[in-house]
Design a protein around this nucleic acid. Structure first.
Lengths: 119, 119
DNA sequence: GGCGGATATTCTCACTTAAGAATAACGGAG
DNA sequence: CTCCGTTATTCTTAAGTGAGAATATCCGCC
Protein backbone atom coordinates (compact mmCIF):
# COMPACT_ATOMS: atom_id res chain seq x y z
CA UNK A 1 0.00 0.00 0.00
CA UNK A 2 2.86 2.34 0.62
CA UNK A 3 5.30 1.05 -1.92
CA UNK A 4 4.20 0.19 -5.44
CA UNK A 5 5.46 -2.86 -7.30
CA UNK A 6 5.88 -2.88 -10.97
CA UNK A 7 6.07 -6.32 -12.51
CA UNK A 8 3.42 -7.62 -14.90
CA UNK A 9 2.01 -11.07 -14.31
CA UNK A 10 -0.27 -13.37 -16.17
CA UNK A 11 -3.55 -13.74 -14.36
CA UNK A 12 -5.35 -17.00 -14.03
CA UNK A 13 -8.75 -17.63 -12.61
CA UNK A 14 -9.95 -20.52 -10.58
CA UNK A 15 -13.48 -21.49 -9.78
CA UNK A 16 -14.77 -23.07 -6.63
CA UNK A 17 -18.29 -24.24 -7.07
CA UNK A 18 -20.00 -25.24 -3.94
CA UNK A 19 -23.64 -25.91 -3.26
CA UNK A 20 -24.85 -24.21 -0.12
CA UNK A 21 -27.87 -24.67 2.06
CA UNK A 22 -27.58 -22.45 5.08
CA UNK A 23 -24.35 -23.55 6.70
CA UNK A 24 -24.36 -26.85 4.83
CA UNK A 25 -22.44 -27.49 1.66
CA UNK A 26 -21.28 -29.88 -0.99
CA UNK A 27 -18.06 -29.21 -2.84
CA UNK A 28 -15.30 -30.64 -5.00
CA UNK A 29 -13.71 -32.71 -2.23
CA UNK A 30 -16.64 -35.03 -1.64
CA UNK A 31 -17.30 -35.15 -5.35
CA UNK A 32 -13.84 -36.47 -6.08
CA UNK A 33 -14.11 -39.06 -3.33
CA UNK A 34 -17.40 -40.21 -4.78
CA UNK A 35 -15.93 -40.51 -8.25
CA UNK A 36 -13.25 -42.87 -6.96
CA UNK A 37 -15.71 -44.84 -4.84
CA UNK A 38 -17.87 -45.39 -7.90
CA UNK A 39 -14.80 -46.48 -9.82
CA UNK A 40 -13.20 -48.69 -7.20
CA UNK A 41 -16.02 -49.86 -4.97
CA UNK A 42 -14.09 -48.93 -1.84
CA UNK A 43 -13.62 -45.82 0.22
CA UNK A 44 -10.16 -46.80 1.39
CA UNK A 45 -9.14 -47.36 -2.24
CA UNK A 46 -10.48 -43.89 -3.02
CA UNK A 47 -8.32 -42.56 -0.21
CA UNK A 48 -5.24 -44.19 -1.66
CA UNK A 49 -5.99 -42.57 -5.01
CA UNK A 50 -6.33 -39.20 -3.38
CA UNK A 51 -3.54 -39.75 -0.87
CA UNK A 52 -5.92 -38.96 1.97
CA UNK A 53 -6.34 -40.54 5.39
CA UNK A 54 -9.37 -42.82 5.55
CA UNK A 55 -10.58 -41.17 8.73
CA UNK A 56 -10.57 -37.79 7.07
CA UNK A 57 -12.45 -39.02 4.01
CA UNK A 58 -14.99 -40.69 6.22
CA UNK A 59 -15.56 -37.47 8.13
CA UNK A 60 -15.94 -35.47 4.95
CA UNK A 61 -18.50 -37.88 3.54
CA UNK A 62 -20.37 -38.09 6.81
CA UNK A 63 -20.59 -34.34 7.08
CA UNK A 64 -21.86 -34.02 3.52
CA UNK A 65 -24.52 -36.63 4.15
CA UNK A 66 -25.64 -34.87 7.30
CA UNK A 67 -25.76 -31.61 5.41
CA UNK A 68 -27.66 -32.93 2.44
CA UNK A 69 -30.04 -35.08 4.42
CA UNK A 70 -29.55 -38.31 2.51
CA UNK A 71 -26.89 -41.02 2.13
CA UNK A 72 -24.30 -40.66 -0.61
CA UNK A 73 -22.67 -44.07 -0.16
CA UNK A 74 -23.06 -47.24 1.84
CA UNK A 75 -20.34 -49.40 3.31
CA UNK A 76 -20.20 -53.07 4.26
CA UNK A 77 -17.65 -54.51 6.65
CA UNK A 78 -15.98 -57.88 6.27
CA UNK A 79 -16.18 -60.27 3.35
CA UNK A 80 -13.86 -61.25 0.58
CA UNK A 81 -11.89 -58.02 0.30
CA UNK A 82 -12.47 -56.88 3.84
CA UNK A 83 -15.33 -54.63 2.92
CA UNK A 84 -16.87 -52.49 0.20
CA UNK A 85 -18.40 -49.08 -0.29
CA UNK A 86 -20.76 -48.18 -3.12
CA UNK A 87 -22.70 -45.08 -4.01
CA UNK A 88 -26.40 -45.02 -3.29
CA UNK A 89 -28.83 -44.29 -6.11
CA UNK A 90 -29.38 -40.76 -4.81
CA UNK A 91 -25.62 -40.38 -4.49
CA UNK A 92 -25.06 -41.36 -8.11
CA UNK A 93 -27.73 -39.02 -9.30
CA UNK A 94 -26.56 -36.12 -7.22
CA UNK A 95 -22.94 -36.56 -8.23
CA UNK A 96 -23.80 -36.66 -11.92
CA UNK A 97 -25.80 -33.50 -11.70
CA UNK A 98 -23.14 -31.76 -9.66
CA UNK A 99 -20.43 -32.70 -12.15
CA UNK A 100 -22.48 -31.52 -15.13
CA UNK A 101 -23.31 -28.28 -13.33
CA UNK A 102 -19.68 -27.63 -12.51
CA UNK A 103 -18.43 -28.49 -15.98
CA UNK A 104 -20.78 -26.13 -17.77
CA UNK A 105 -20.36 -23.37 -15.24
CA UNK A 106 -16.61 -23.57 -15.52
CA UNK A 107 -16.82 -23.34 -19.30
CA UNK A 108 -18.99 -20.24 -19.02
CA UNK A 109 -16.61 -18.72 -16.47
CA UNK A 110 -13.60 -19.36 -18.69
CA UNK A 111 -15.20 -17.45 -21.50
CA UNK A 112 -16.12 -14.54 -19.26
CA UNK A 113 -12.68 -14.47 -17.73
CA UNK A 114 -11.08 -13.99 -21.11
CA UNK A 115 -13.59 -11.28 -21.84
CA UNK A 116 -12.61 -9.23 -18.80
CA UNK A 117 -8.99 -10.26 -18.36
CA UNK A 118 -7.60 -10.74 -21.87
CA UNK A 119 -3.88 -11.18 -22.43
CA UNK B 1 -23.28 -43.54 5.91
CA UNK B 2 -24.77 -46.18 8.11
CA UNK B 3 -28.05 -44.56 8.92
CA UNK B 4 -30.09 -42.86 6.23
CA UNK B 5 -31.87 -39.60 6.83
CA UNK B 6 -35.07 -38.81 5.12
CA UNK B 7 -35.97 -35.15 5.06
CA UNK B 8 -36.17 -33.17 1.82
CA UNK B 9 -34.41 -29.84 1.68
CA UNK B 10 -34.26 -27.04 -0.76
CA UNK B 11 -30.83 -26.78 -2.32
CA UNK B 12 -29.12 -23.52 -2.94
CA UNK B 13 -25.86 -22.89 -4.69
CA UNK B 14 -23.20 -20.43 -3.89
CA UNK B 15 -20.32 -19.32 -6.02
CA UNK B 16 -16.88 -18.32 -4.89
CA UNK B 17 -14.98 -16.70 -7.67
CA UNK B 18 -11.36 -16.21 -7.01
CA UNK B 19 -8.60 -15.25 -9.37
CA UNK B 20 -5.50 -17.38 -8.93
CA UNK B 21 -1.94 -16.99 -9.98
CA UNK B 22 0.11 -19.78 -8.52
CA UNK B 23 -0.41 -19.46 -4.79
CA UNK B 24 -1.62 -15.87 -5.15
CA UNK B 25 -5.22 -14.87 -5.31
CA UNK B 26 -7.81 -12.14 -5.34
CA UNK B 27 -11.27 -12.83 -3.94
CA UNK B 28 -14.52 -11.38 -2.66
CA UNK B 29 -13.05 -10.15 0.65
CA UNK B 30 -10.62 -7.64 -0.84
CA UNK B 31 -13.20 -6.66 -3.43
CA UNK B 32 -15.72 -5.70 -0.78
CA UNK B 33 -13.14 -3.72 1.13
CA UNK B 34 -12.25 -1.86 -2.05
CA UNK B 35 -15.88 -1.06 -2.76
CA UNK B 36 -16.23 0.59 0.62
CA UNK B 37 -12.92 2.42 0.33
CA UNK B 38 -14.05 3.85 -2.99
CA UNK B 39 -17.33 4.88 -1.41
CA UNK B 40 -16.02 6.27 1.84
CA UNK B 41 -12.46 7.33 1.13
CA UNK B 42 -11.17 5.54 4.22
CA UNK B 43 -10.05 2.06 5.05
CA UNK B 44 -11.08 2.30 8.67
CA UNK B 45 -14.55 3.42 7.55
CA UNK B 46 -14.66 0.39 5.26
CA UNK B 47 -13.78 -1.76 8.26
CA UNK B 48 -16.64 -0.30 10.27
CA UNK B 49 -19.03 -1.10 7.43
CA UNK B 50 -17.78 -4.65 7.32
CA UNK B 51 -17.34 -4.99 11.07
CA UNK B 52 -13.73 -6.00 10.62
CA UNK B 53 -10.61 -5.08 12.56
CA UNK B 54 -8.50 -2.50 10.75
CA UNK B 55 -5.37 -4.57 11.21
CA UNK B 56 -6.98 -7.53 9.52
CA UNK B 57 -8.23 -5.47 6.58
CA UNK B 58 -4.82 -3.95 6.16
CA UNK B 59 -3.22 -7.36 6.08
CA UNK B 60 -5.72 -8.63 3.53
CA UNK B 61 -5.14 -5.68 1.25
CA UNK B 62 -1.39 -5.87 1.65
CA UNK B 63 -1.36 -9.55 0.76
CA UNK B 64 -3.49 -8.97 -2.31
CA UNK B 65 -1.19 -6.20 -3.49
CA UNK B 66 1.82 -8.40 -3.00
CA UNK B 67 0.11 -11.17 -4.90
CA UNK B 68 -1.02 -9.03 -7.78
CA UNK B 69 2.17 -7.03 -8.04
CA UNK B 70 0.63 -3.56 -7.99
CA UNK B 71 -1.02 -1.21 -5.49
CA UNK B 72 -4.77 -1.34 -5.06
CA UNK B 73 -5.11 1.65 -2.75
CA UNK B 74 -3.03 4.41 -1.20
CA UNK B 75 -3.30 5.87 2.28
CA UNK B 76 -2.35 9.21 3.77
CA UNK B 77 -1.87 9.77 7.47
CA UNK B 78 -2.91 12.88 9.39
CA UNK B 79 -4.97 15.79 8.11
CA UNK B 80 -8.52 16.92 8.60
CA UNK B 81 -10.12 13.58 9.29
CA UNK B 82 -7.02 11.87 10.56
CA UNK B 83 -6.20 10.30 7.24
CA UNK B 84 -7.63 8.97 3.97
CA UNK B 85 -7.36 5.98 1.70
CA UNK B 86 -8.29 5.99 -1.97
CA UNK B 87 -8.09 3.40 -4.72
CA UNK B 88 -5.31 3.70 -7.25
CA UNK B 89 -6.19 3.91 -10.95
CA UNK B 90 -5.12 0.28 -11.44
CA UNK B 91 -7.13 -0.66 -8.37
CA UNK B 92 -10.27 0.95 -9.75
CA UNK B 93 -9.83 -0.75 -13.07
CA UNK B 94 -9.10 -4.14 -11.61
CA UNK B 95 -12.02 -3.97 -9.21
CA UNK B 96 -14.44 -3.00 -11.95
CA UNK B 97 -13.38 -5.87 -14.15
CA UNK B 98 -13.48 -8.30 -11.27
CA UNK B 99 -17.00 -7.21 -10.32
CA UNK B 100 -18.25 -7.46 -13.89
CA UNK B 101 -16.65 -10.88 -14.28
CA UNK B 102 -18.22 -12.13 -11.06
CA UNK B 103 -21.64 -10.70 -11.85
CA UNK B 104 -21.91 -12.29 -15.26
CA UNK B 105 -20.43 -15.57 -14.11
CA UNK B 106 -22.89 -15.75 -11.26
CA UNK B 107 -25.76 -15.11 -13.62
CA UNK B 108 -24.59 -17.93 -15.87
CA UNK B 109 -24.17 -20.22 -12.87
CA UNK B 110 -27.66 -19.42 -11.61
CA UNK B 111 -29.15 -20.48 -14.90
CA UNK B 112 -27.15 -23.70 -14.98
CA UNK B 113 -28.01 -24.45 -11.39
CA UNK B 114 -31.70 -24.31 -12.14
CA UNK B 115 -31.11 -26.52 -15.12
CA UNK B 116 -29.51 -29.28 -13.05
CA UNK B 117 -31.23 -28.73 -9.71
CA UNK B 118 -34.78 -27.62 -10.49
CA UNK B 119 -37.40 -27.36 -7.79
C1' DG C 1 -11.13 -70.00 15.07
C1' DG C 2 -7.64 -66.86 13.84
C1' DC C 3 -6.00 -63.63 9.81
C1' DG C 4 -6.46 -59.95 6.81
C1' DG C 5 -8.38 -56.06 4.89
C1' DA C 6 -12.00 -52.81 4.91
C1' DT C 7 -15.46 -50.04 7.41
C1' DA C 8 -16.54 -47.12 11.46
C1' DT C 9 -15.24 -43.86 15.15
C1' DT C 10 -12.76 -41.20 18.40
C1' DC C 11 -8.83 -38.73 19.95
C1' DT C 12 -4.46 -36.12 19.61
C1' DC C 13 -1.32 -32.89 17.94
C1' DA C 14 0.53 -29.66 14.69
C1' DC C 15 -0.46 -25.99 11.91
C1' DT C 16 -2.97 -22.45 9.93
C1' DT C 17 -6.21 -18.72 10.33
C1' DA C 18 -9.06 -15.29 12.84
C1' DA C 19 -9.48 -11.47 15.94
C1' DG C 20 -7.88 -7.94 17.89
C1' DA C 21 -4.68 -5.61 21.41
C1' DA C 22 -0.80 -2.58 21.44
C1' DT C 23 2.21 0.91 19.55
C1' DA C 24 3.97 4.38 16.54
C1' DA C 25 3.67 8.01 13.06
C1' DC C 26 1.25 11.68 10.89
C1' DG C 27 -0.84 16.35 10.21
C1' DG C 28 -4.85 19.58 10.39
C1' DA C 29 -7.78 21.72 13.97
C1' DG C 30 -8.46 24.11 18.03
C1' DC D 1 1.69 22.42 20.82
C1' DT D 2 -1.57 19.22 22.21
C1' DC D 3 -5.52 16.47 20.62
C1' DC D 4 -7.95 13.47 17.53
C1' DG D 5 -8.79 10.15 14.12
C1' DT D 6 -6.60 7.66 10.74
C1' DT D 7 -2.90 4.99 8.56
C1' DA D 8 0.76 1.53 9.32
C1' DT D 9 2.74 -2.45 11.71
C1' DT D 10 3.77 -6.07 14.91
C1' DC D 11 2.57 -9.33 18.42
C1' DT D 12 -0.40 -12.35 21.22
C1' DT D 13 -3.90 -15.32 21.79
C1' DA D 14 -8.10 -17.94 20.56
C1' DA D 15 -10.33 -20.82 17.33
C1' DG D 16 -10.58 -23.80 13.54
C1' DT D 17 -8.60 -27.27 10.32
C1' DG D 18 -5.80 -31.04 8.67
C1' DA D 19 -3.39 -35.22 9.11
C1' DG D 20 -3.28 -39.21 10.94
C1' DA D 21 -2.65 -42.53 15.09
C1' DA D 22 -5.31 -45.74 17.70
C1' DT D 23 -9.07 -48.84 18.44
C1' DA D 24 -13.09 -51.60 17.57
C1' DT D 25 -16.06 -54.25 14.48
C1' DC D 26 -17.26 -57.10 10.72
C1' DC D 27 -16.91 -61.38 7.82
C1' DG D 28 -15.07 -64.42 3.98
C1' DC D 29 -11.24 -67.44 3.75
C1' DC D 30 -7.68 -70.69 4.99
Amino acid sequence: MEQTKEQERELKYHLRLRIFYEERNFGPGVAELMKYVRERGSLSAACQEMNMAYSKAWKIVNKAEEDLGFSLMEGKRGGENGGTTVLTAEGEDFLDRYLAFVKETEAAAAELFHKYFPG
